[in-house]
Design a protein around this nucleic acid. Structure first.
Length: 587
RNA sequence: CGGGGAGUGGCGCAGCCUGGUAGCGCGCCAGUUUUGGGAACUGGAUGUCGCAGGUUCGAAUCCUGUCUCCCCGACCA
């Protein structure tokens, strides 16, 4: 029966036999895959690239996506959210009402229908959901309401990369809450926050919920859910003693205690030929970068020019500066502007004699006798002191937090991590309900704008993040809750009748017991099958071979530990089921 | 969008400088021998060399244009 009859194999029911499944694995890593999750997803036959940032989900990939979706769905439902499905394409008209047709820029993929009416492919659905609610909810009695969907989004990213981690087309769960007032909205927000914690915990992810910058949208609050991984694109800090955690974009820093020691050195000019960076200058002066001040000249989007003083070894947090200045974007000033403001080429800027606003990071107030640029080509100054030698407009928290800084909430120290943003909860306020006139009557019969929140999870990104955290040199190591299959039954030699029969029996038994099992019935050498099984990352593998059968046993191998035990055929099914259940409950 | 690189069989690449038969490894198909960590041998199939134009007796190779993809910087789930 293993023979092919007229080019077609006999149909055998369930398509979970490897020989008949669609699972194209790759021995070699595709050249365009940078990060490990992308490489392994491609090699394991989970995804295939169709265009930049656009992927096919092959069966194995889809199974993982569905696992993530179902966990999300269960927890959203449990938290009282209600699933809907909005269209992928939405009319320009709605986006014009909110003002985002203009604001969104090139990331919004716009298109026209045959009548030349403008549409976009939804990158997010605040407008559409607000339109639903404003047309159907008129009374505070219908609140609170939380609607969510799991749907394909499109954002025409400038630079898609890292496979599913940052695609242009991607699957996202987005939820939107509607409440009568701020206090009620806070409750909705907190409910989502808790649901998110459960979701990522159940996915087996090591994550941190961090405070995030709420951006230009409004003064409300926001948390990001960050999966800890070296390859993460975000930098976050968390306190080693309290619960505080934040994106470095957001992380506040307390003003350091103490004031600057009294000046002890005179201001002196030193020739620093062609030395422009803090590194070069401090090496030349034999002075630590932390004893220097760097002066950054920046240009805001309103063309205002401002100079910022930072300790030499610190990094400017542009978002803090933007928030202080009330602008949206900043960039380093170009050479002409630097020349005009400082009277010298860039690389020699200092605060003395500047013709623009000068701000300083609060830390600068505790420093004395430092080095800085002389505003003259090829010269720096040493022994500079605030007050005596120059003034600034204000001391502000402007630098980026880093490992070792003091926690802004307690006496602990901050630790630094890299994170992958897999979820974001956001209190929106009334931005959309105001602009789109989504109102209800309160118990006084008075019209009130709905207070909204929005809550996103990147489904594919969560799957990719899981691989970033769970892999070894042989491939993926799925946590049980996300595994595309829970068990793989490997027939070492399917041409051996006893092996085939025993494998087949176990496969059927596990299927009947509700286990997601893949039967590797391919006529391949054992080595290839082991390599594939490791690559796919299926948590439990049962080796069915002649050697074991002699002892009336299978061999059970755990993917993560590699540990192998002999499993008597009698009762093997039940033992495997128990192990799968235990692993699911643990997550 | 700025800067850098690349498009040659399903995948990974060589060939290009110096124009003349399109090649290697993996994979695929057939057969034989194999069968507990990516088997060996034999035989076979598969390419508009990204696309368009130009130079030339002749272009994967030289020239022009164009598209796509990748990497480094500003956005986000």
């Amino acid at each position: 029966m293993k023979r092919v009859i007229s080019g077609r194999k006999p149909f055998r029911g369930y398509q979970m036999r490897y020989s008949q499944y669609f699972l194209p694995t790759l021995k070699e890593t595709p050249g365009d895959a940078e990060v490990i999750s992308h490489q392994l997803m491609a090699r394991a036959g989970m995804i295939r690239k169709v265009a930049a940032g656009i992927y096919d989900y092959l069966p194995l990939g889809l199974r993982v996506i569905r696992k993530v979706e179902n966990i999300i769905r269960e927890e959203m439902n449990r938290a009282g959210a209600i699933e809907i499905l909005m269209p992928a394409v939405s009319p320009a008209d709605l986006w014009q009402q909110s003002g985002r047709w203009q604001e969104y820029g090139k990331e919004l993929l716009r298109l026209k229908d045959r009548k030349d009416t403008e549409f976009c492919i939804g990158p997010t659905h605040e407008e559409v959901v607000t339109e639903i609610v404003r047309g159907t909810v008129n009374s505070y009695r219908q609140l609170p309401l939380n609607l969510y969907q799991i749907q394909t989004k499109f954002r025409d990213e400038i630079r898609p990369r890292f496979g599913l981690m940052r695609g242009r087309e991607f699957i996202m769960k987005d939820a939107y809450s509607f409440d009568i007032d701020d206090a009620a909205a806070d409750i909705s927000y907190d409910r989502m926050y808790q649901a998110y914690r459960r979701i990522f915990k159940r996915c087996g992810l090591d994550f941190r919920a961090v405070e995030a910058d709420s951006g230009a949208i409004g003064g409300s609050f926001s948390h990001e859910f960050m999966v800890l991984a070296e390859t993460g694109e975000d930098a976050i800090v968390s306190c080693d003693t309290c619960e505080y955690a934040a994106n470095v974009e957001k992380a506040e820093l307390r003003a350091p205690a103490g004031s600057a020691p009294a000046p002890s050195q005179p201001l002196a000019k030193v020739e620093t030929p062609n030395l422009k960076s803090i590194e070069d200058v401090s090496a030349f002066l034999k002075e630590a970068p932390g004893k220097m001040i760097k002066t950054l000249v920046l240009q805001a989007d309103n063309d205002e020019v401002v100079a910022v003083l930072l300790r030499g070894d610190r990094t400017l947090n542009e978002i803090k500066l933007c928030n202080f200045l009330g602008c949206n974007h900043l960039q380093l000033a170009d050479e002409a502007v630097v020349q005009k403001v400082t009277g010298a080429p860039s690389g020699f800027s200092g605060p003395i004699g500047l013709t623009c606003r000068v701000l300083a990071d609060q830390e600068v107030a505790t420093m004395s006798d430092f080095g800085l640029g002389a505003n003259e080509a090829n010269y720096h100054l040493t022994g500079a002191n605030y007050g005596r030698d120059f003034q600034v407009e204000a001391f502000v928290d402007l630098r980026q937090a880093t490992a070792g800084d003091s926690c802004p909430r307690c006496d602990g120290k901050l630790e630094a991590w890299r994170g992958i943003e897999v979820g974001h909860v956001f209190k929106l306020g009334t931005k959309y309900s105001d602009s789109m006139h989504a109102v209800v009557l309160d118990d006084q019969g008075k019209e009130r704008p709905l207070v909204m929140g929005c809550y996103g999870i990147g489904v594919g990104r969560a799957a990719a993040a899981s691989i970033e955290q769970n892999h070894d040199e042989n491939g993926i190591v799925w946590p049980m809750p996300l595994a595309p299959f829970q068990v793989i039954v490997t027939m070492l030699n399917p041409n051996d009748e006893a092996v085939f029969a025993a494998g087949e029996n176990l496969y059927q038994e596990l299927l009947e017991k509700g286990i997601e099992v893949l039967l590797d019935d391919r006529d391949e050498r054992p080595g290839s099958k082991f390599k594939d099984a490791d690559l796919l990352g299926i948590p439990l593998r049962v080796n069915v071979g002649a050697r074991g059968l002699k002892e009336q046993s299978f061999e059970l191998q755990e993917r993560r530990s590699g540990e192998r035990i002999m499993l008597p055929i009698e009762g093997a099914g039940a033992k495997i089921v128990a192990q799968v259940r235990a692993a699911l409950d643990a997550g």
